[in-house]
Design a protein around this nucleic acid. Structure first.
Length: 342
DNA sequence: TAGGCCATCTGGTCCT
DNA sequence: AGGACCAGATGGCCTA
């Protein structure tokens, strides 16, 4: 990542001159501004020939430069540079578009999808992580969580707007699971009188808490947000489900991957001799949406494996999930499955 | 107007 | 050599 002084100097000018604002940029990738930038490189050359190995014209008094000889920017080289740059820009655009497409797909399978109010990228990733963890934890324990714990798990680390959005999608009032902040208490402590679970969700988003940076992106472990719980192996990131869903469950955040893979969930599930009724109930926790289009059918996938229950379930007559109403129905179905008889 | 979010350009690094 | 990936920089758009 270190750049030479020469490159940096070119950068400082090039970044200013070469950069074309989003939207303005064309497939030509820079256009006249790039021409201007390259022109000053061109000025170094003596003539217009394509000789790329000419001697540098450093003054005789100047010390000889070490390292590889710096090639001059002839017109041919400039042209190649421009073409290479254009192609690289196009590739990078496509790459980012692919990334955004994948993110959009993720938005649709996360418990909070709205076409009108899209989750930001970072919030989508956080919510997805929480969702995966919560579902994995449900599978692992074989028990259905209470609604508050589930929502708290989903909203952990999310910004206030996203928390509100999730609450809205789940038709909950965020105040019912976000503790009110009292001025007497530090921001990281839950207010007195509130019901606190072990590993209580004490995050208070900037929208409700003055003085905190807004929003706390990229700060999943700040002590000013989560209070340290003694004995929790992972510090301030204790799971909501600790003591609520499973008393001996793994801590929430530290694993970079879900506690168990889907296959692992099901294999261990079987071995844990879950009662058939619970098995069915828990199985519905793990449903994922297939990619059915509008008017098509949605495929609900189980965990796979040899268990016939884990096979693919075809749900005909369901709309594609690109409609908000369908997504809500699917979410309701999921939540019903989770909280039914819990 | 400040801050958040985003798209794009860019050069560096790694890999094939 | 060329492509993929990454992070920094920049500027536009939107909202509180």
């Amino acid at each position: 990542m270190t750049r030479s002084v020469e490159q940096a100097s070119v950068d400082s000018e090039g970044q200013q001159e070469l950069h074309s604002p989003a939207g303005e940029e064309s497939e030509m990738g820079g256009g006249e501004e790039e021409e201007d930038h390259l022109h000053h490189l061109e000025d170094e050359e003596d003539d217009d020939d394509d000789d790329e190995e000419e001697e540098d014209e450093d003054g005789e008094n100047k010390p000889k430069r070490r390292g590889p000889k710096k090639k001059k920017m002839t017109k041919a080289r400039i042209q190649r540079f421009k073409v290479r740059r254009m192609k690289a820009n196009a590739r990078e655009r496509n790459r980012m578009h692919g990334l955004n497409d994948a993110l959009e797909s993720l938005r649709k399978v996360v418990p909070c999808y709205s076409k009108t109010q899209k989750l930001s990228k970072i919030e989508t990733l956080r919510l997805a992580k929480n969702y995966i963890w919560a579902l994995s934890e449900i599978l692992r324990s074989g028990k259905a969580p209470d609604l508050m714990s589930f929502v708290q798990a989903l909203c952990k680390g999310l910004s206030q707007p996203t928390t509100n959005l999730v609450a809205g999608c789940l038709q909950l009032n965020p105040r019912t699971f976000l503790p009110e902040q009292t001025p007497d208490l530090p921001a990281h402590l839950p207010p007195a009188g509130t019901v606190t679970y072990p590993g209580h969700f004490s995050y208070q988003s900037p929208g409700l808490t003055a003085g905190l940076p807004s929003p706390p992106y990229g700060t999943m472990e700040p002590s000013h947000i989560f209070h340290q719980v003694k004995g929790q192996p992972y510090g301030p990131l204790e799971p909501f489900f600790d003591g609520v869903l499973v008393s001996d469950g793994p801590a929430f955040d530290p694993p970079l991957s879900p506690p168990l893979s889907i296959n692992g969930n099901f294999s261990s599930f079987k071995q844990e001799s879950v009662a058939p009724a619970d098995y069915d109930k828990s199985f519905s926790f793990s449903v994922h949406y297939g990619g059915g289009g509008p008017g098509g059918h949605a495929a609900i996938y189980g965990g796979g494996g040899s268990n016939p229950r884990c096979g693919e379930l075809q749900v005909d007559g369901l709309m594609g999930f690109d409609g908000h109403s369908h997504h809500e129905r699917m979410m309701n179905a999921q939540l019903n499955a989770i909280f039914h008889d819990s």
